[in-house]
Lab assay of single mutants.
Amino acid sequence: AIERGSKVKILRKESYWYGDVGTVASIDKSGIIYPVIVRFNKVNYNGFSGSAGGLNTNNFAEHELEVV
């Protein structure tokens, strides 16, 4: 089962992080479509409006993740 702290591989082909491994930061139990927040070591794009980097978290559905 996917739980907080799990290392997961991203299976969503259109994702910037496809094939990468991230760490589960949290799981939303409220029934939303993409409840699993995954944190990565790298950012997906340069930040804007003065922020240092881009996003390094993204929401995924459990079926888009594979525990490694």
Rank of each mutant, 00 (worst) to 15 (best):
S30W: 05
N56G: 05
D28P: 02
A25R: 04
E3S: 13
N41F: 08
Y18M: 02
K7S: 08
D28T: 04
S26C: 15
Y45D: 15
K7Q: 13
Y34N: 12
I32N: 11
T23E: 12
V36W: 02
S30A: 09
K9R: 11
R39P: 00
W17G: 00
K29D: 12
S51H: 08
F48W: 04
L55Y: 12
L65Y: 01
K42M: 04
E66T: 06
G22Y: 06
T23L: 09
L11P: 03
L55V: 14
V68W: 04
S15M: 02
N46T: 05
G19N: 09
L65I: 06
I33K: 13
E66G: 04
V21Y: 07
K7L: 13
V8Q: 01
S15P: 00
N59I: 05
V67L: 13
L55K: 09
I32S: 13
A61Y: 07
N46R: 01
T23W: 10
G5W: 02
G53Y: 03
N44C: 15
A52K: 11
L55T: 14
S49F: 13
I27D: 00
E66I: 07
R39C: 15
D20G: 06
V36F: 14
G53K: 08
I37L: 14
D28V: 05
N46F: 09
A61R: 02
V21D: 02
V67T: 05
A25Y: 07
Y45I: 15
V38W: 00
G53A: 12
V38T: 00
I27M: 06
E62T: 10
V68K: 03
R12H: 04
E62R: 08
G50V: 05
Y45P: 15
K7I: 11
K29G: 10
F48L: 14
L11R: 04
G50T: 07
V68Y: 06
S15A: 02
I10S: 02
I32W: 06
N59W: 08
Y45K: 15
E14D: 12
A52N: 12
V8W: 00
E64Y: 03
I37M: 13
K42Y: 05
N56Q: 09
K42N: 12
S30V: 06
N44K: 12
A1W: 08
I10H: 03
A61E: 05
I32K: 10
G47H: 07
P35W: 14
G50I: 05
Y45C: 15
R12N: 07
F40E: 04
N41R: 08
W17R: 02
L11D: 01
S26E: 13
V24I: 05
T23Q: 05
L55P: 06
N56E: 10
L55Q: 13
G54P: 09
Y18K: 00
G53D: 14
G22V: 08
V8I: 02
F40R: 03
I37H: 10
L65D: 02
R12E: 04
N58M: 14
W17A: 01
G47S: 08
Y45R: 14
T57N: 05
I37T: 14
N41S: 12
W17Q: 01
K7G: 02
H63N: 08
T23V: 12
K29I: 08
N46W: 10
F48H: 14
H63C: 14
I10Y: 01
A61D: 04
N58D: 15
D28A: 07
S6W: 10
I2N: 02
D20I: 13
T23I: 14
G5P: 02
S51P: 13
A61W: 07
G19E: 07
G53R: 05
V68A: 05
V8Y: 00
E62N: 08
S49Q: 14
G5T: 02
